[in-house]
Design a protein around this nucleic acid. Structure first.
Lengths: 153, 153
DNA sequence: TATTGTTATACTCTATAACTATA
DNA sequence: TATAGTTATAGAGTATAACAATA
């Protein structure tokens, strides 16, 4: 029987655990999880609003408000496209970039600590399996490079 | 070097992926993620409010409102303890139990589908690693049995 | 007309502070 | 006094519906 009864509980609990750490680091940086997610998506490139609704999985009005709130804090900037004056692009400001880099590094460090007690080969196997799931689901690069895990270089 | 650069991104993205599926199934059952989480915790036993704040990681006032909203919908019931008249216990009603069982089964099924394309031994290895992380972090049984994964019976 | 965004509205979630009741 | 909960308040997140501007 290919059914694995424990894997669902493992996935759910692990996701809540990661979200809890994520949220805690957000709070330390005075960011909400949604704000942090947006900023991590913008970390390496500016994005259009429509593109962001797809990547973040939120509706337009929600994104509109989300951007407005961090724009008000000077962490993000709206840019208009002269070619299509309806379109809006969002980019991090200098200060937004700093905060995002800090946040990103801290989350990465915390999660690596989380698995630090596991043998290296088990970590690698786990990462490979996780990316196997993510690739099949076409999960957007919400966090980390768009590149693949194999790039351990 | 024991550093695994991809594992943090894997954990974050995977957690968002699971949360997305979880939230979608919540919506199908007309539940918010927080409500569903509470109900899954109550699935097999009633719990005290203080205990629930620890398990769910929320403050008392938040839990108070959360319970009030699903109580109003008849899915949950408050019970008082005659021995300590300050204490309150929360339990699922019959209808709450039905909905929770449905929800639980659907989430389990969906997540098993998510990994169905992976070979069985890779699924098992993944589950083992995940529980290794969860045990080390003492994550409460938010979803699934309090028992261990080895119980594949 | 179709698309891009924003505004209006309503509800849930969640934190802090202040309060009530019981121990 | 200390503990268990609730109420008050405020802000964030997010959905739907209605609107404005541009294509």
């Amino acid at each position: 029987m290919p059914e694995n009864p424990g894997i669902a509980a493992a996935l759910v609990r692990l996701s809540f655990l990661v979200q809890r750490h994520y949220a805690q680091i957000c709070a330390q940086h005075d960011l909400s999880p949604a704000q942090a997610e947006l900023m991590c998506v913008l970390k390496d490139q500016a994005r259009g609003l429509t593109e962001l609704t797809r990547m973040l999985g939120v509706e337009r009005p929600g994104l509109s408000g989300l951007v407005a709130r961090i724009e008000r804090r000077g962490l993000v900037r709206r840019e208009t496209n002269p070619l299509d004056r309806r379109a809006v692009t969002v980019a991090l400001t200098g200060r937004g970039k700093e905060i995002t880099d800090d946040f990103y590094a801290e989350v990465s460090g915390r999660l690596r600590q989380l698995v630090a007690h596991l043998p290296a080969d088990q970590q690698e196997q786990f990462t490979t399996t996780a990316f196997g799931i993510l690739l099949a689901e076409e999960v957007p690069p919400i966090f980390g490079d768009a590149e693949e895990p194999g790039t351990t270089s």
